[in-house]
Design a protein around this nucleic acid. Structure first.
Lengths: 119, 119
DNA sequence: GGGAGGGATCGATGAACGTCGATCCGCATG
DNA sequence: CATGCGGATCGACGTTCATCGATCCCTCCC
């Protein structure tokens, strides 16, 4: 399930307005847990490279067969990493015929980056 | 050792110019490893809350005694998390007399967020 | 100098994670 | 219908990590 949507409102206190709450509010335990879950999904060399390779691919989508060999990892491992990224809401999966195509969820990385910058 | 400085040049290819390389370059293995190391340091609920609490504290600095109790973790654990963040270049430590004060490294989180957004 | 308190380090323990081989599922083609 | 191939799932194994209690170091103050 996509967890990125939550990232745009890390602290409940500042969910109403856009920016600049009067006093910096410490991150609540619940928000920290959710943000950490998404960051953990990205905090892996193989998964970072997968994200990058999908983004750099033509038409912004790639199938597993394109990703296995340049990564130097086995097909089950790549499939596992992709599943983690999909569950985190970073990538989306679409199966067309024999192949499964992965692409970046628009805005997901930007939302995550914004959450990191405003922790 | 601070690893944040590297984050501003995730892919060696685009280190020379500022923005918009002609074709999106896939993240190299080495860059992915470094970025993942820094992200791993941040991808923990306790450490995210520590960062937030330090940032929200008066004068942007806090000593361990201020952080242990609201976090609900033991003093050695908090000390360990702070060390991880210092080693990652997110926080800086300064010992003044009896107490040790931690503060955010200026721009560290922004650099990390930028690296996430441009993977 | 001796006691007290803030913090860092050490060693152990249990849980989470990355990786793989083997297997299973689904779709396309002869 | 049988075969082949892309991909997901399963089970296992070794490593990493978060956490703690115990201990040690350092600074302050009596």
């Amino acid at each position: 399930m996509a967890t990125v949507d939550i990232l745009q409102a890390p602290a409940d206190a500042q969910a109403a307005e856009c920016c600049a709450p009067p006093v910096r509010q410490a991150l609540a335990a619940e928000g920290a847990e959710k943000l950490a879950r998404t960051l953990k999904a990205v905090a892996d060399p193989a998964r970072l490279r997968l994200i990058s390779m999908v983004a750099a691919h033509d038409d912004d989508e790639a199938c597993v067969c394109d990703l296995t060999e340049p990564l130097g990892l086995s097909q089950p491992t790549v499939s596992h990493h992709l599943k983690v990224l999909v569950d985190a809401g970073i990538l989306s999966r679409e199966k067309r015929g024999t192949w499964a195509y992965y692409r970046l969820v628009p805005g997901a990385l930007d939302a995550l980056a914004h959450s990191v910058a405003t922790v």
